[in-house]
Amino acid sequence: MEPIILIFVVIALAVVVLSVFFSFVPVMLWISALASGVRVGIFTLVAMRLRRVIPSRIVNPQIKATKAGLGLNINQLESHYLAGGNVDRVVNALIAAQRANISLVFERAAAIDLAGRDVLHAVQMSVNPKVIETPWVAAVAKNGIEVKVKARVTVRANIDRLVGGAGEETIIARVGEGIVTNVGSSDSHKDVLENPDSISRTVLGKGLDAGTAFEILSIDIADVDVGKNIGAHLQTEQAEADKRIAQAKAEERRAMAVAHEQEMKARVVEMKAKVVEAESEVPLAMADALRSGKLGVMDYMNLRNIESDTQMRSSFGKLTDPGTDKDRE
């Protein structure tokens, strides 16, 4: 029984060794590469394992590139993989660019991929332009009427400006700015409604795709709508503000008038007090004049007569006509 057990142990060890060998050394991938005309050594595949590179992610794209006649080598693909790029997507983009007769080299495609852009999508967009629809853009004409415009921008990817070029958000912002400028320079909103194509011509002529990753092919006005009367609304708010300012100034003038009136009343009271004080000094002055001989007895009597006559006249002036009082009642 012992020789049989030994045979089973040997077979089991052989199976384990072969499994480890075939899992570490991609023999089937090497055979597939040779059958496709890609010359890659078995030790090169083992070295990829040691460099922590998945061989299938390098060899399979190399097979596609060789079949497409791109002339790439393993080192280029492996270096791009180690840099964190997507090798399969770059090779697919190069094949699509070759079929579409677009000039694109591996270095440019790898740089675009490492920049975080989808190079395959960019190549497809170069062949098949994309339509970007802007949101509603509100602008006000010179007559104060609001105009809302929605546009469709047809763009094509610019391969040479994909690295460092601005994206779709910049295109939308620039188109919106152009729409606002064009509508704002119109004398009336009717001019915009009659000739919406003038917006397209004006905006397209501004070179809005400068510094972006796209090339604008056309700008088409999808919809135009009339909004609020912004001019009348602003005039109403201005009139309301002017009214409030006038009311505030009137209230200020009223407060100043009340303060002036109170001040005048205080002055009158002060003057009356001074008059009473002066009148209280008159008898003392007359007594002093009599003692000093400056005022004679006859002069004093004449003064008393004048005072009596003045009091009599005052009492006559206070009498009222009975008929007048009845009429008043």
Score class of each variant (00 low, 15 high):
residue 92 N to A: 13
residue 215 E to G: 05
residue 41 G to L: 07
residue 150 K to D: 02
residue 153 V to Y: 04
residue 274 K to M: 12
residue 110 A to T: 05
residue 56 S to D: 10
residue 214 F to A: 03
residue 322 P to K: 03
residue 289 A to I: 00
residue 107 E to Y: 06
residue 126 S to Q: 03
residue 190 K to S: 14
residue 101 N to D: 13
residue 280 S to C: 09
residue 216 I to V: 15
residue 194 E to C: 10
residue 281 E to S: 14
residue 159 I to D: 03
residue 12 A to V: 08
residue 69 G to T: 04
residue 146 E to L: 08
residue 142 K to C: 06
residue 226 V to Q: 04
residue 14 A to I: 11
residue 280 S to F: 08
residue 22 F to N: 11
residue 276 V to N: 12
residue 101 N to Y: 02
residue 233 H to P: 04
residue 280 S to M: 14
residue 59 V to G: 00
residue 17 V to T: 12
residue 41 G to S: 13
residue 72 L to A: 12
residue 185 S to T: 11
residue 240 E to Y: 11
residue 266 A to Q: 14
residue 213 A to H: 07
residue 243 K to P: 00
residue 134 T to W: 07
residue 274 K to Q: 15
residue 75 N to A: 15
residue 327 D to A: 11
residue 267 R to A: 15
residue 9 V to F: 10
residue 120 L to T: 01
residue 275 V to P: 01
residue 2 E to S: 14
residue 205 G to C: 08
residue 7 I to S: 14
residue 24 F to L: 15
residue 13 L to Q: 07
residue 35 A to W: 08
residue 238 Q to M: 12
residue 275 V to A: 15
residue 61 P to L: 03
residue 217 L to F: 11
residue 307 E to K: 03
residue 255 A to V: 09
residue 86 N to H: 07
residue 248 A to W: 04
residue 213 A to W: 02
residue 328 R to A: 12
residue 243 K to W: 04
residue 307 E to H: 06
residue 173 A to E: 08
residue 157 A to R: 00
residue 247 Q to H: 12
residue 309 D to S: 10
residue 116 G to K: 09
residue 239 A to Y: 06
residue 313 R to K: 14
residue 229 N to C: 00
residue 153 V to P: 03
residue 160 D to T: 10
residue 48 M to R: 04
residue 135 P to C: 06
residue 234 L to E: 09
residue 178 G to M: 12
residue 315 S to D: 11
residue 94 L to A: 12
residue 109 A to Y: 07
residue 140 V to K: 00
